[in-house]
Design a protein around this nucleic acid. Sequence first.
DNA 1: TAATAATCGAGACGGTACGTCGCGTCTTGCA
DNA 2: TGCAAGACGCGACGTACCGTCTCGATTATTA
Lengths: 201, 201, 201, 201
Amino acid sequence: MKVAPDPSRRSHASRRAILAAALDLVGEVGYTKLSIEGIATAAGVGKQTIYRWWPSKGSLLFDAFLTLAGDEQDGATAGLPDTGDLETDLKLVLRTTVAELNDPRYDLPMRALHTEIVHDPALAADYAKRLDEPMRELKKERLRAAQRAGQLAEDANLDVAVDLLFGPILNRWLQRTGPLTPEYAGQVVETALRGLRPREP
Amino acid sequence: MKVAPDPSRRSHASRRAILAAALDLVGEVGYTKLSIEGIATAAGVGKQTIYRWWPSKGSLLFDAFLTLAGDEQDGATAGLPDTGDLETDLKLVLRTTVAELNDPRYDLPMRALHTEIVHDPALAADYAKRLDEPMRELKKERLRAAQRAGQLAEDANLDVAVDLLFGPILNRWLQRTGPLTPEYAGQVVETALRGLRPREP
Amino acid sequence: MKVAPDPSRRSHASRRAILAAALDLVGEVGYTKLSIEGIATAAGVGKQTIYRWWPSKGSLLFDAFLTLAGDEQDGATAGLPDTGDLETDLKLVLRTTVAELNDPRYDLPMRALHTEIVHDPALAADYAKRLDEPMRELKKERLRAAQRAGQLAEDANLDVAVDLLFGPILNRWLQRTGPLTPEYAGQVVETALRGLRPREP
Amino acid sequence: MKVAPDPSRRSHASRRAILAAALDLVGEVGYTKLSIEGIATAAGVGKQTIYRWWPSKGSLLFDAFLTLAGDEQDGATAGLPDTGDLETDLKLVLRTTVAELNDPRYDLPMRALHTEIVHDPALAADYAKRLDEPMRELKKERLRAAQRAGQLAEDANLDVAVDLLFGPILNRWLQRTGPLTPEYAGQVVETALRGLRPREP
DNA sequence: TAATAATCGAGACGGTACGTCGCGTCTTGCA
DNA sequence: TGCAAGACGCGACGTACCGTCTCGATTATTA
């Protein structure tokens, strides 16, 4: 019978080395050539140390990504910018997102993580709970503020609103169906906010 | 020296068997366990026959998917429904899309193809040209009709509009960040069309 | 810096459990699948306790075998039987040896120990000194008595004589080049004693 | 279901490289450190090519040993020397055997093969049939000639006689219970032929 | 009788090798 | 010449053990 290892005896040095090596390697060789063996070697670690603590390559990538995200933007917990002008704020956020997706340091790791999520419902659930929901809540909070300021329809479904704003960008990035530019981000915000319907006369 | 094979001598029986086996297998074992070797065995075909005609697993999946799509909805070439009511028509289309994404026969093959596209820019370009653009053109055509009918802003960017409508659905399907229901599809259409801004007084 | 452990603080319970587990395990799973890790687990003991007290798997097996032998036949120290009839006595001894080699409780442990000896000269020396030589001395003592009784050539090399008697049995047992029966043991004794040359006329 | 590979498609170059590498490696690093992985690397061959054609490390060593033996002494098929003087002939043969066992090129490979035989009854049977029995038959043939020449007891059991001659040498070699010298070989022959009993008066 | 020092169980660690699977290439013999 | 079949060199998989290394928690003297 398989028993869970005791986390209190875990080597933090190895953990950090593994996560760093995973990020480095996925950036260098890409998702397809990323191997546990390669990560272990790059981290100066035995393979078993990886298999002991992570159930799958996906969950390792997830942890690595959390580290990456946590290191740089844990100020994100502070919430989205609120200048009082929703459109300006959203454009800033989406353009930042676009810049991040175009940043080579993030591009390959995020594609790798995305792929694992797509094929692993358990990981998807983990991702949804630990990354997507908190960030989504921040976004919805900003939209709620906009509602209070009368800049957004009272009855708008905020989850749908968030999807409307971020879905197009993520898809274009993933599928490369068009150039992922700040201009595109701006158009998405404008179109989503203005709506597609013709103006009321 | 490598010479290109002569397509006129190609065995159609083998081609069909390979594409069918690829679809069957990806549905049975999923993308991660899908192997060329397995497809060849299941198709009763030599491995070389696959390597001779397809440059990558992704392009094989793409072909297989074209077959799948072609068999069932080649009437799609006929264009989107146009009852005169844009919202109704779009809801129908998006709900059909949702049903398709939820159909087990399509789910795994599409995830597999998506993954290949995400990691293979050449395949992404092929996909964009041969599948995305034609379908996008049909959608834009319907939106243009709506513009002519005054149901859509004259200055709306139609590419952005299409992304706004389909991006959220595809993302929710891929990342499982929420249930992918017809209701959700309806809300996306409504929100996109109505816009997020408060009504003009 | 490495210091020698203090034998006075050694846990006798652990020692006994390890030796017993080693014998049990080698009997159950055979030499090839015998592992220090397995012995430690079966003995309810930490691995380090084994590595602390034994320099190699071979020396552990040697100790275990000494225990096994000591428990049952420490009367062997008393010397070989001496009824006055050398041939009868030798046949008894060799048949006993054959029975022991055929005993499942001894077979696998002895094969394991033999293998370690074959590949480890240091262990071989230890074995020669602590097991082979004392037993060999007992055998030679019996042969010397036979010499005094005029049943054995005065100038016979007793070491060679012992090898001549036991070598064939051990080899047949190890290599399974033929059935290891009491009859075979008897034939070996007869042939060795009688010699191969024809009777003087 | 596992099917046997087709021997007609086997690569002879790989086969030879593997057998040679096995012999070289076992001579260099010894039995304990001999690994399939190491052999494959040294032979410039994939591991699977070894696993495809040999069921165990032992059977590979056996094949390698057959090659070694076949290359050098396939003249052995011609039979043992027969000068008319049995004792001289046997001493020559046993001294040659001793020299061979002391030859570093043979020592480690033979120990390795011996170990595999000891722990693998199937391999032991193969060894008995393909190596031990033919060589034993040659020896018995020489002894039969001696019987016809009146140099050996008519009723001597030839199998036992062969064991009596070779068993002691093999044992001393394996267990290192004493120096393995030509003198020892001579004494074994003399003692075995003369017998241990005193001369008839 | 407490302090103290070593062994003890447990098991994580960096490694090596295992035996298997799949890759993409190459060769063979049939149609 | 295309094909089914499959051997090949290669690389990675996930597992088993190696021998070393911490960890508290017994123990069994020594102060």
